[in-house]
Each structure stands twice: as C-alpha cells, then as structure tokens.
Design a protein around this nucleic acid. Structure first.
Length: 127
DNA sequence: CTCCTGACTCAGC
DNA sequence: GGCTGAGCCAGGA
C-alpha cells in the first residue's frame, strides 16, 4: 500500500462478523496470500477495517504459532517490508529461509522489491 | 476488575 | 530525516 492510497480511519466497514475472533480473520487472509507474495500488518488491518489496529494483526500472528492449519506468518511483514517478526519464529533465520523458498530476496532483514511482491488483500480479495 | 504490554502505524517535533 | 508520543484492541497477570 502506498502513501497515496491512504484511507481515512473513519472508513470502517463492519462487514466482519464478531462471531469470529479477530485472529480468525487474520488467519484467513494470511493463508490466502499467494506463494511468493507478501503483505503487511497494516494491509491486513486495513482489510479488516481497523487500519489503526495493525498491532492486533501482529498479536494474532503471535497466536498463529498454535494455529492450524499453519499460518504462513513469514509472508507478513511491517509496512517497510522488514522482517519485524523474524525474532518470533522458531529460529531468527527461519523466516528468511521460508521467504527464500518462495523466491523472495531478503536483504538486511528487508524484503527486496517489497512493493512488487506486495499483496494487498483489500485489493486482491476485493472485499 | 484494573493495569500492562505488544510481530504496527501515523502525526508531530 | 530520525526520534517520540499517541491510538488502536485483545489477552495475560
């Protein structure tokens, strides 16, 4: 997502069902990320209608460790494309390795060509 | 029940 | 242009 594509926080679609945990929504989105693509916490949060709650997405990822089926959390990075969550994986290098398997180049804990590989759920899923 | 923290992001200085 | 503070929601102590 680009700065030019900023949306007003007042724009909050409540199409989400509160019956499901915030995590479930996050998992659903993350699991739909195509192989070789990545997205950001903010994008997911925005997709969920809570752009300001990007932290919750990260929080959900924390719980994603126990989620089944496994959630490709390695495809989720911060808005800069930096592997902010790599430290939370089994091993600090695991995230980078997973990305490498998807032909994603990681340089200095940051995804190279992040903008090209960026996968916007709000756009791709067109909710 | 209240308080604290957190894999983020934006606005301000 | 880098650092700080504030906002957001949910879960754990």
């Amino acid at each position: 997502m680009k700065k030019t594509n900023l949306k007003k926080p007042t724009e909050k679609p409540r199409s989400l069902d509160k019956d499901y945990s915030f995590f479930e929504n996050v998992y659903a989105v993350v699991r739909q990320i195509p192989r070789g693509r990545v997205t950001s916490y903010g994008a997911i949060a925005n997709y969920l209608g809570t752009r300001l709650s990007a932290r919750m997405v990260g929080w959900a990822m924390n719980a994603a460790h126990s989620a089944k089926p496994k959630v490709p959390a390695h495809r989720v990075v911060n808005r800069n494309g930096m592997l902010s969550g790599k430290a939370h994986f089994a091993t600090p290098t695991m995230m980078e390795e997973q990305l490498a398997k998807e032909k994603i180049v990681v340089k200095d804990d940051t995804i190279s060509g992040f903008e090209k590989l960026f996968w916007d759920p709000a756009k791709e899923l067109a909710l």
